[in-house]
C-alpha cells in the first residue's frame, strides 16, 4: 500500500516535470516576445540577452492601442474568426455525420476529394479566388474571408468529426429514430453532445485557422477598417527603418489571448464526464 502511494507520488512528480519541460520549451519564444514587448526601443537588442528589462515600460501597449489601428484589426479578426468557427462547425457536423453513418454511392470519393483539394499550394489559389470574390462583389468584405476560411477549415473538421462519430455507438440513435426522432434531431440531441471533445477541437481549429491566416486576408481586404490582425501586424513590420518591435511583440502577445481564453472555457467539454453522463442518461 505504501509502495503504491509512493509510485503514485513519483508518477505525479514525473507528470509535472514533463508538463513543465514541455511548457518551458513551447513557451520559450513567447516569453521572449513578452519580455520584448515590455522593453523600450533601445533595450530590444542587447549584446547579452536580457530577460528582465532594465527599464520596463507599458508604452508599447499604450501606443499600440491608442496610436495604431490595432483595436480595429483585433475586432475584425474576432468577427471573422467567430463566424467562421460557427459556420465550419455546423457544416462539418452534417458532412461528418453523413460520411460516418450512411453508406451511399460516392462516399469514399467524397471523403478523398475533401482531402485532396487541400493538397495544392495555397499560393496558387489566391488569384482564382480573388477573381471570384471580385466577380461576386465581395472584395474588401469580411464575408469573403469567412467564406474562404470556413471552407479551408472543412477538410479537417469533416474528417475529425467523422472520426468522432465513428466511435459513438449507433444503438442510441437507432432507438431514438424508432421513437420517432428525425435524423437531424438524433444528430443534434444525441450524437453531437457525445462528440463534444471533437466539436471543441474543430471549433478551436477553425478559430485558429481564421485567426492566423495571412495570404488571403492580405489579398481580399484592402482598406484599413477591414484589415485583420495578421495583416496589420505584418504591415507594422514595414521594410526597414525604425520598426517598433516592442509594439509588434505586444500585438502578438495580445493576439494570443482570445484563443487561449476560449479554450480555457471550452476545455471542460473535453472532459470525459460530459460524454459519459450523456451515454448513461
Amino acid at each position: 500500500m505504501i509502495g503504491n502511494r509512493r509510485t503514485k507520488r513519483l508518477k505525479t512528480a514525473g507528470v509535472y516535470l514533463g508538463l513543465i519541460a514541455f511548457s518551458a520549451v513551447l513557451l520559450f519564444p513567447f516569453l521572449w516576445m513578452i519580455s520584448t514587448s515590455l522593453k523600450p526601443d533601445h533595450e530590444v537588442f542587447t549584446q547579452v540577452p536580457r530577460w528582465i528589462p532594465q527599464e520596463p515600460t507599458l508604452d508599447n501597449y499604450r501606443n499600440l492601442l491608442t496610436r495604431t489601428s490595432y483595436p480595429t484589426y483585433f475586432r475584425n479578426s474576432i468577427l471573422v474568426s467567430v463566424i467562421t468557427t460557427l459556420a465550419a462547425v455546423v457544416i462539418a457536423s452534417f458532412a461528418g455525420y453523413s460520411l460516418s453513418r450512411f453508406r451511399f454511392r460516392g462516399r469514399r470519393g467524397v471523403g478523398i476529394l475533401i482531402l485532396v483539394v487541400q493538397m495544392f499550394p495555397a499560393v496558387l489559389l489566391v488569384i482564382p479566388l480573388f477573381t471570384l470574390m471580385q466577380q461576386l462583389g465581395l472584395l474588401n468584405t469580411h464575408l469573403s474571408l469567412i467564406i474562404a476560411y470556413g471552407t479551408f477549415a472543412l477538410p479537417f473538421s469533416t474528417w475529425m468529426l467523422k472520426g468522432y462519430f465513428d466511435t459513438i455507438p449507433t444503438a442510441l440513435e437507432e432507438s431514438a429514430l424508432i421513437d420517432g426522432c428525425t435524423r437531424t434531431q438524433a444528430l443534434r440531441q444525441i450524437v453531437l453532445p457525445l462528440a463534444a471533445p471533437g466539436l471543441v477541437t474543430v471549433a478551436l481549429f477553425s478559430f485558429v485557422l481564421a485567426w492566423q491566416e495571412y495570404l488571403f486576408a492580405l489579398a481580399f481586404t484592402r482598406t484599413e477598417p477591414m484589415r485583420t490582425l495578421t495583416v496589420g501586424l505584418a504591415l507594422m513590420q514595414g521594410q526597414h527603418g525604425r520598426i517598433s518591435w516592442g509594439e509588434i511583440m505586444a500585438g502578438a502577445f495580445i493576439a494570443c489571448i482570445p484563443a487561449v481564453l476560449i479554450f480555457t472555457f471550452l476545455q471542460r467539454y473535453l472532459v470525459q464526464g460530459f460524454t459519459q453522463g450523456a451515454v448513461k442518461g
Binding site: S23, L27, F30, M33, A234, A252, A255, V260
Partner: peptide, 18 residues
C-alpha cells in the same frame, strides 16, 4: 492545457521573428 496552445495561436510572422 490552455498555456501550451500558444505556439499554435501566436501570429506566425511575429513568432518567426522571435
Amino acid at each position: 492545457r490552455a498555456l501550451i496552445l500558444v505556439p499554435w495561436v501566436v501570429p506566425l510572422a511575429v513568432a518567426a521573428v522571435a
